[in-house]
Amino acid sequence: MEVSRRRILQKHLEPARPLRRCIHIDMEPQINAATCAQALMEEVDQETDISIEQFYKIVNLQKHNEGRISYTRDFLIGLASCPEARKKPEFLPEHPIVLTEARDPGDLRLHEMGGGKEEMAAVRLHSP
């Protein structure tokens, strides 16, 4: 029962999903609550390392966010490369930090795949 309620909740949240990836809908109906919770924990752990209590807290918070327009990072980034997002703004002041042509939206994230992980690891090493 728990499980099916949660599924309905997730559906209502479209497209607002603070957790980057949510429960798969195609679960077997006879899966019991414990297995399901385990699956949830694994899903969540991969991305953020939060506990199941925190997960429920976020789901509850999300209820407060209903009626607000929210987007996940991945969704926003998905829109970055569409032609509408690449146009030059109508009013753009002339300024040294303003570019005449749009930068490639992927350049930062490509960089992230290359050097990014090492940088983060370096931060960890430096921290006590």
């Binding site: 997002a85 703004p89 570019l99 930068r103």
Partner: peptide, 13 residues
Amino acid sequence: VEQFWRFYSHMIR
């Protein structure tokens, strides 16, 4: 969102 990216992609990082 689209208008945001227009500005963001025209500014240096």
